[in-house]
Nucleic acid binder design. Structure first.
Length: 111
DNA sequence: ATTGTGACGTTGC
DNA sequence: TGCAACGCCACAA
């Protein structure tokens, strides 16, 4: 297969471990992977997540501001927001409210 | 190898 | 976090 799986795999692994009702940022995941400056790659990996057999809760992954920047890539327009709201997360205008409360830091919870 | 690009982040204003 | 610009890494063509 691909060697890059390693990098992507890590991203998917962390993303899948995001607890219910929690969200994280690309940078946080990237940091956990050891590539803080590769936050964009994390998002790119998510784009590839569609090709992955394992479903990745990309809707739980947002940018540092808690803005649903990636909702644009979802099936529907508000699908991502609906999923987050379904988990109890308040989302207004693609912006997660109480981000600090729902934020999940992989580097702290995970290791 | 080179270029382009991207679901970001940080710094500057 | 209001907007602009740079940087940064990994991958595709």
């Amino acid at each position: 297969m691909k060697k890059s799986e390693n990098f992507f795999e890590k991203v998917y692994d962390v993303a899948r471990q995001i607890p219910f009702g929690r969200v994280t940022s690309y940078g946080a995941i990237a940091k956990h992977l050891g590539a803080v400056r590769s936050a964009r790659m994390v998002g790119w990996a998510m784009n590839n997540s569609h090709n992955q057999e394992i479903e990745v809760p990309a809707h739980r992954v947002v940018n540092r501001k808690g803005l649903l920047t990636g909702k644009h890539h979802f099936d529907g327009t508000n699908l991502m927001q609906q999923l987050l709201e379904n988990e109890g997360i308040v989302v207004i205008d693609n912006q997660i409210q109480d981000l600090d409360k729902v934020f999940w830091n992989p580097s702290e919870e995970l290791k």
